[in-house]
Nucleic acid binder design. Structure first.
Length: 265
DNA sequence: ATGGTTGGTAGCCAA
């Protein structure tokens, strides 16, 4: 089973890329972030025409996430628990039946947090990460294959960016941010890409500005974090870098993980 | 080099 995460940076501006990607990469489940669309204007029919189920949590103008899948989900939950006043559309969770049980796939768009001295933005990021940690602790107690996939807006380690000095003061790389990410790992979640390679300079995002793509000035911020039960079934991962070279690309590329959920638990 | 690029929106903001 192929599970993907992709920050698409505007699903309506990117519908041709999305179709081309779904047809060529053929994921079973895809987590999309930054759809920048309300549910009413989401290009549902175009995606359903390719044989996918579509679940969205939209928002006007920015944010917004979608979970699209070949299988019908058994259960969908919208929003990250822990703050009823939070109106930003950044989280959608689906449960899917596989042979021998269920898998749980969460699509998340973690707040960017810049600028870090803003009175609202960085504290919101850290609070959101605390809520994610509490959520993960709850779900990990179920002892089932759990995949938390999305744009984390976190550069986990210095080797995940082209130049750590450039990112030193950025909300994506501050020690406090990285420590919060490590707390997720310490709960028992593993970075799928890092389970399969220790290679440096693997990136999932290149800024549109200053020729970052041409110079390979990228960062790795899109992650699939796995429970032990999911990690046990992991076969391989891939960062689909070629998608960044397409016409009118997103600034992020899809990150995928292949699993074998066919064996009994 | 505190620059420059994109999407959604009509607030220039968010990234």
């Amino acid at each position: 089973m192929k599970i993907a995460t992709w920050n698409i940076n505007g699903v309506r501006a990117r519908i041709d890329n999305l179709r081309q990607w779904l047809e060529s990469s053929n994921p079973d489940i895809a987590c999309l972030q930054e759809i920048k669309s309300v549910d009413e204007t989401f290009p549902r029919a175009e995606i359903e025409a390719l044989g996918y189920h579509v679940e969205t949590l939209g928002q006007k103008g920015f944010n917004g996430v979608a979970l699209i899948s070949k299988m019908q989900p058994d259960e969908i939950t919208r929003g990250l628990p822990g703050d009823d006043a939070d109106e930003q559309a950044r989280f959608i969770e689906g449960v899917f039946s596989v042979k021998g049980g269920a898998i749980r796939v969460c699509c998340l768009y973690l707040p960017n947090g810049n600028p870090p001295d803003d009175p609202v933005k960085y504290p919101y990021k850290l609070a959101w990460m605390e809520r994610l940690e509490a959520f993960a602790r709850d779900r990990l107690a179920l002892e089932e294959p759990l995949i938390l996939a999305g744009d984390y807006n976190v550069i986990p380690e210095p080797q995940d960016c082209h130049d750590p000095r450039v990112w030193a003061g950025d909300a994506l790389f501050l020690p406090t941010t990285r420590a919060a990410f490590r707390r997720l790992e310490n709960l028992g979640l593993s970075d799928a890409v890092r389970l399969t390679t220790d290679q440096s300079k693997l990136y999932s995002f290149w800024d549109y500005q200053a020729g970052a793509w041409q110079k390979n000035n990228g960062i790795r911020i899109d992650h699939l974090m796995l429970s032990a039960e999911a990690a046990d079934r992991l076969l391989s991962t891939d960062i689909e870098k070629h998608v960044r070279g397409w016409e009118k690309p997103s600034d992020h590329v899809p990150v995928i993980a292949m699993f074998d959920f066919s064996a009994a638990a």
